[in-house]
Design a protein around this nucleic acid. Structure first.
Lengths: 363, 363
DNA sequence: GATAACTGTGTAAACGTTTCCAGTTTGTGG
DNA sequence: CCACAAACTGGAAACGTTTACACAGTTATC
């Protein structure tokens, strides 16, 4: 049990006061060459490191940022965190991580805990920034924060892409490919602000082309089995030829579900995702999607946040929109011009479960 | 700029001492019903929350754990963190996250920073646990830690799978499929302890079958372009029919590189990965791999760690081996019995770069 | 050769908690 | 009615820092 060595131990060994040790080691205030040397030598001999807790208490700055994401299983968030992490570190900040599992209660609890730990600022991806009471209360308080991915309508600091425009561009691509009857598939939290913006943009593209308004289908997160929801949709709208999914992970799961319903992508149905996660390029078929600059979003967000913190302010309540890029993939093909997709034999029941996305704990 | 409300403010409003407030709000020590009520009402009115920094300083416990991983872009680490996070939270601990980018210097720096922040314990995945001076010094000090994935030979607390046995089982599968001339492809840090164990186990399976010892090929992490290394290998060992890669991400990149060299998997070459990341089941071809129970590893590791912390001890220097599972995939096929794979036309030069694994920042 | 301005150093008071100790009530049994 | 315990409460000292302030000694200014 090595006893912790404090600034007092260093002072004793160097034969001076703790104030002097602090000044020497921090390079603040004057010190004679003689004492500087003694202090440094004592610190080295003792293996002294400042206790950041003591420092934080006194300075009321923790040099720690809180980051809250819905989950880590979606690589899109891991990518953002990677970007945030790298930049935060070069600026001398550490990251306290929390996952809220897409649950507003957990978001609230996590924010609370992070504040209690006295983070200097918060990077958040929440379900719905406008509706979140925590975000609202954050605005009125002194804790700097910035949203990532969220695209609220009201004035809130955030970094994201123009979801509506990106979704509209997906709409255009689908229209170009002849898909006039389509649907938007969203996760349970279709109330997610970014998902809403995407649906709006998507619908607008279809409105402008005088095509039928895309149907909205909500499926459950947490489960990967979307067969029931899809079967119902296909039944109701037999003319459907393309699906736009609110994110890539969902799109991949949807492709698996379609397959187990006897529908091949893109032969019987085109599918487009959103996010541009790396693996989407490796799947079979590769996924057409909208690539968002995740690590750069993280980088920008944390830079804005730290700049504000160090200026003693809060990030301006503005949305920073970063460029996105449509990334073609095999999952999007032109609509077959002749007859509608064959209602081939396979019934859902006698088909294997799509173990496409089993969880990692497969033991 | 809302001013922070402290226990003193609550005490003043409730008309009592801070000691009493502390006792009431923590439920430690006695208090009259009257004062209890006044304190609670004051705390609520003021929106008081304990400052965990003050608490930590006084209790010398931060209720924070440090977690160090090589990267977040490999989903295997994200999965572990997810498991760690969930369990840590239910036990009342937060996570301070650091990524070392597979660099020992960064590992050292990160551990140092985490210690300065007074984490109560450390969860680590390092390049080489035996060789790491930080891990060595950790052993001699009082900071509890536990390794994840690492499988050192010396007695160190860790949670992993039996890498040698798992790799041997891969060897058996390959032998069964008729692959008698094979290679092990490892990332730059073939000095990684787990990677070494895998190679050893793999070689042993081949030794026991009296087959040629698998070649060892090292490629660079960081880059995804392994064509040069592979071209050289194929040139030197034309009879090669299968590749075992030290992890799934590498395996996917290798499949892409082979393709751009004009070799199709599994037609011309079988490939097996290690880790069992979810997406490996979705790629084309799907990847044969060894599935490790990532979130459960995280869960077990953090449980061992917190148990030790709360007992005032350190986790016992034992390796906890969790079960793994071979997961078949299309990337592994029987060796074609007739002639060796055709040296088909495509020269590396006139083939597109395998943008299989471009990074997320594609803008 | 006095005054002013530094330079170098130490003392002590914060920062927000918890907790030991001592003091004041209140209650109880004799 | 008194001693004594139990219940309740507050004062103050920690925890490890930083920093305002004071003070001594040294150098520069006229």
């Amino acid at each position: 049990m090595a006893v912790r060595v404090t600034i007092h131990d260093v002072a004793k060994r160097a034969g001076c006061s703790v104030a002097t040790v602090s000044r020497v080691l921090n390079g603040t205030g004057p010190a004679s060459a003689e004492i500087r040397k003694r202090v440094q030598e004592a610190a080295r001999a003792l293996g002294f490191r400042f206790n950041e807790i003591g420092r934080s208490l006194q300075s009321r700055r923790s040099r720690t940022l809180g980051i809250l994401v819905p989950t880590l299983s979606n690589p899109v968030f891991a990518a953002v965190i990677e970007g945030v992490q790298a930049t935060a570190r070069t600026r001398g900040y550490q990251l306290l991580l929390a996952c809220a599992n897409y649950r507003p209660e957990e978001e609230a609890e996590a924010i609370d805990t992070l504040r209690a730990k006295q983070v200097d600022g918060l990077l958040l991806t929440v379900s719905d920034a406008e509706a979140s009471p925590e975000v609202a209360s954050l605005r009125e308080e002194d804790l700097p924060f910035i949203l990532i991915f969220n695209q609220p309508r009201c004035a809130l600091p955030s970094v994201t892409v123009d979801n509506a425009a990106a979704a509209a561009s997906v709409g255009c691509r689908l229209l170009e490919a002849g898909h006039r009857e389509v649907a938007y598939v969203a996760g349970r939290f279709s109330s997610s602000d970014r998902s809403q913006r995407r649906y709006e943009g998507f619908c607008q593209a279809y409105a402008e082309a005088d095509a039928a308004k895309p149907s909205l289908v909500e499926v459950d997160y947490g489960t990967f089995d979307h067969r029931a929801a899809l079967a119902q949709l296909l039944d109701k709208r037999p003319g459907l030829s393309a699906l736009f999914c609110s994110n890539d992970m969902l799109a991949l799961a949807v492709i698996g579900a379609l397959r187990s319903l006897g529908r091949e992508v893109p032969r019987d149905m085109s599918v487009v995702g959103f996010d541009g996660i790396e693996v989407a390029a490796l799947t079979a078929p590769s996924l057409a999607t909208v690539a968002t600059p995740c690590p750069d979003m993280g980088h920008r967000a944390v830079t804005r946040l730290i700049d504000a913190i160090e200026a003693g302010e809060r990030p301006p309540a503005e949305t920073l929109l970063l460029p996105y890029e449509f990334r073609p993939g095999e999952s999007l093909a032109p609509r077959p011009t002749e007859n509608p997709p064959p209602e081939s034999g396979n019934s859902p029941a006698d088909v294997l479960s799509p173990n496409a996305l089993t969880t990692g704990e497969s033991l």
